[in-house]
């Protein structure tokens, strides 16, 4: 029997559909790219989620699933809730075989990650759109902006970048190099300048030139530094005073981040009302499971993923591929004979 198709929980399926019309597919669609990259980072690395339920549905299998989710950084609280819900449903629906359990699991997780809208918002009337990019230190804000700019320019947009990270040494230079690569103009001031002033200049330049998109880079800041968070709120206030509401406020989150990711999302949501997450560095072994907890608790959707250092390595988020990848190696790196068995069984 196939998994019961989304019954009381209908919005599951259409979730990923709107992600695509955002952009005409390049030769390799971002989705293919996403899957391929994730695959590359993970091939030959042991079990997949299929292995967990290979021997049917049992207490051990549920425990193992729990462990896999925790190992993927989904977090204890979210994991316990998800697995408990899953078990209840499995019991209710009389799920017996591993395949059914698997289908149910995927359905539930996809539901967790489902949102109505994953597109990057643009200004409706064709005026300059404003995207503000934020995050803690070292998550890849500047790099993501570089890629974002390249993507938009290729799409035919005129893009202006504002280097409002005036704190980190050479951040503006880094953005300038990206601007050159991407064909976007970069607005900057000297080191130590007021970031809100740079954002203001960026808006002036972008709107005067009739640019389609202004992307504002900001300095990395740890979310528990109140003064720095207030500074960020000011950047947004100044932008919105000039340009009206920001079309996107993106939080760049490192996929290796553990439970602190939730605290980050909370704090940035509070300070600048984050509208989406860019999950970077998914080309490593990290799964980025914390975004599941973030979406559960705060409802912030992942919009983009970073898959590498190349200018093209920024893709739309694909919940299916993400869910598959969550379990790629999590069930054990083959440290127990049991896990090796299963891995062998897979092949």
């Amino acid at each position: 029997m196939p998994a019961p198709p989304e019954e009381p929980t209908a919005p599951a399926a259409p979730a990923e559909a709107p992600a695509l019309p955002a952009e005409p597919p390049p030769p390799l669609t971002t989705r293919e790219r996403f899957r391929r990259r994730l695959g590359r980072a993970r091939t030959g690395m042991g079990t997949t989620v299929v292995g967990i339920f290979r021997r049917g549905v049992s207490d051990e299998a549920w425990d193992e699933l729990e462990e896999s989710l925790i190992a993927a950084d989904v977090g204890v609280e979210a994991t316990l809730e998800i697995v408990a819900g899953l078990r209840a449903r499995a019991k209710e629906e009389g799920v017996r075989t591993g395949e059914e359990a698997l289908a149910l699991l995927k359905e539930v997780l996809r539901l967790e990650l489902s949102v109505a809208d994953r597109t990057l918002h643009r200004c409706a009337d064709g005026a300059t759109s404003v995207w503000l990019v934020t995050g803690v230190n070292g998550t890849g804000k500047t790099t993501s902006i570089g890629k974002l700019a390249a993507r938009s320019v290729r799409h035919g947009d005129r893009v202006v970048l504002a280097a409002a990270d005036t704190f980190r040494a050479a951040a503006a230079e880094q953005l300038e190099l990206w601007g050159e690569r991407a064909g976007a103009r970069v607005v900057r001031q000297g080191p130590g300048a007021d970031p809100a002033a740079v954002a203001f200049d960026g808006w002036q330049a972008a709107s005067a030139a009739g640019a389609d998109l202004l992307v504002v880079d900001t300095a990395g800041r740890l979310q528990n530094k109140t003064a720095l968070m207030a500074e960020l709120s000011k950047v947004k206030r100044v932008l919105e005073r000039e340009a009206g509401p920001c079309d996107e406020v993106l939080l760049v989150l490192d996929a290796t981040t553990g439970q602190n990711g939730l605290a980050q999302a909370k704090a940035f949501l509070e300070a600048v009302d984050v509208t989406g997450i860019v999950l970077t560095k998914l080309d490593g072994t990290a799964k980025g499971g914390i975004v599941v907890a973030i979406q559960r608790q705060l409802g912030i959707p992942v919009k983009l993923v970073g898959l590498g250092e190349d200018v093209d390595d920024l893709a739309d988020f694909d919940p299916d591929a993400f869910v598959d990848a969550l379990f790629a190696t999590a069930a054990g790196d083959g440290d127990t004979p049991d896990a090796e068995d299963r891995a062998a069984g897979e092949r």
């Binding site: 490192d254 290796t256 981040t257 439970q259 990711g261 072994t285 990290a286 914390i290």
Partner: peptide, 12 residues
């Protein structure tokens, strides 16, 4: 290594 890193710390 970043103090905020999660489960991947071991593999890395």
């Amino acid at each position: 290594i970043d103090a905020m890193i999660g489960q991947e710390a071991v593999a890395v």
